[in-house]
Amino acid sequence: MGTAISTWRSKGLLGPRIRILEHEAPLGYLLLAPMLLLLVTFLAYPFLFGIWLSVTNAQIGDNGHFVGLGNYVFERGDTVFLQSFANTMYYTVVTTIAKLSLGLVMALLLNQVFPAQRFVRAALLLPFIIPSVLSTLAWRWMFDPTFSVVNWVSVHYLHLPAVNWLGTTNTALASMMVVNTWRGIPFFGISFLAGLQTIPVELYEAARVDGATRLQQFRTITLPMLRPILAVVLLLSTILTFGDFTLPYVLTNCAPYNSTCVLSTWAFQIGVNGGYIGIGAAISLVLFPLLTVIVAGVLIGLRSEN
């Protein structure tokens, strides 16, 4: 490379524009440029366009005009929107706590040495690997009261009454949470497992020498050492669960009577199927301020720990 540059320089081909790249900063920005362009194109533009749509009365095929916060004010009086908002919060909080707890248990178990360890680790990742649509469809069949294998087992073997899993508000929402938790546990588990394996064994050995119990070791060594990973995983999971669309859409599609709508599915119903894309955008962006606070809180927390 050096030879080539000196050859070009001797031939007078290396002008001032090329020489500027020999400085670190311009070259750095140049190398960053493609990624920045990608981010602006595929992240910033759709996001800003979404914000713009939310303050217009746009409909599918009609750009509409600026209406300020009219869409947000209009949705405030919509009972299904309010229900969707509450469902989204409930769904996110419950599933995140469940995934966190069960994921930690999974990681602690997988961190032990046992036969077929690698196979079990790989198998436990399956819920995360299978496309959401397929796995949710399978769950849909399992929950359907007419075909339900869950009901069949509980009625025939456990002698319990059949449950209309997707037919009542509470059980349908609970079913959504079960499937989301089932699907999300491997993400938490594998992330925690990676964190557990970075904790030096010497710390546990020293603790044992000092007479610490297993619980004390977990509380004073494992948990503090996992905190950075825990924060990141929690953050990602919260964002993804808030915006979860595929699972609620395929499992219940808001039924029964729009009682299991979350913001993403209600935004889709109004914005895409109903054509009011401006209102749909407003519905989907309503959580943005809250998410911003959560993300900022976690990032500040992480920085202070460092």
């Binding site: 929950f143 359907d144 007419t146 209309n164 997707l166 037919g167 029964p256």
Partner: peptide, 10 residues
């Protein structure tokens, strides 16, 4: 009474 979540193929 089991049809509250039924979609078209069900």
């Amino acid at each position: 009474q089991n049809t509250l979540s039924w979609l078209d193929p069900d």
